[in-house]
Design a protein around this nucleic acid. Sequence first.
DNA 1: AACACCTCCAACCGCAGTAAT
DNA 2: GATTACTGCGGTTGGAGGTGT
Length: 355
Amino acid sequence: MGKPPCCDKNGLKKGPWTAEEDQKLIDYIRKHGHGRWRTLPKNAGLKRCGKSCRLRWTNYLRPDIKRGKFSLEEEEIIIQLHSVLGNKWSAIATRLPGRTDNEIKNYWNTHIKKKLLRMGIDPVTHSPRLDLLELSSLLSSSLYNSSQLNPTGLLGIGSMFNPNCLNLATALMTSQNKNLEIGTTPGNVQQNQTGNFQCQNQCEFYQGNQVQNPIQACTQIWQANLNHFSTNPTSLTCQNSTLPNLWQEYDRENINVSNSKGFFPMQNYGYHEFNQSNINSLAGQNQTFFSENIPNLNTFRSLLSTPSSSSTPLNSSTTYVNNNGSSTEDIERDSYCSNMLMFDVPNGLNVNGSV
DNA sequence: AACACCTCCAACCGCAGTAAT
DNA sequence: GATTACTGCGGTTGGAGGTGT
């Protein structure tokens, strides 16, 4: 027959561990090592089941566990890996020394997930929530020209769909109406000598098209970014001399976030800060990790090798409108991966949905 | 001060794959 | 081969602490 039945769960303690229990477990493992979790509690004098002891050790008492807040780099790595691996918390944890899968899972569910939702990004697919965009577009097309109502406010999705995006589109339309001298043919998307995409042309493209309303304009811009990143994973540069101010602001804000670091042009996120040390730690430590765990390895590697963009410093006289009550730290942390949806708000524009 | 609500995270639960008997 | 334990994993929960009214 098989092994004797598992430990009798009756009479075993559950719930939070006391300091005394922790000490008993630590002392025992120091002397005898871990493993044999079934017999460990009895030998250590603990009224716990082996599973509980193992969990307590691996998630809390292990000496190599790094406690405290997640750093920005750690958060970046989590998002990057989650976009490729999904909810494989243990696989993600192997890339974050000192962090447990449980800790990463909790952090994802309590912080990162909400952050992505606020940005209008589906935390499961890591793609923009086009369902919201389509809904907004449908309603706004009938509302925009007839009133000052804010469709995102009506829908109650203001916190999920960044209103600043609307202002970008609004400003684009304004620019269009003012007949800004752009100079090139609408829709003429081209690459410069270094192969970098010219966002100037992207902007012209949308100015040249028949944009129905701000949300539709924003949607198209968004889609174009996705299409661009999926087909042309190179850095994006802007020729400031021909750019509308909004695009300059957009570019500056991206640059501000990264300082001198390189950008990581995520297919789903637009620009994502990603410095060389991260790349090294991800790609260099264990090459087999990528080949074993990441199906589209070549695409991922090509993204990792993306060159840095401009490091122009920011003249930070502009203001972000934050309508969700995030803390200052959250705002700072949000910024690094929300560049695609964050735009400077021109003075006088109402972005809060209030009349 | 008291209460309600919210956030966070340690711990639990159940499942699946593997190893041991 | 059957049965059971062990281990790892991901999803969920409950309570402590924080915040708002």
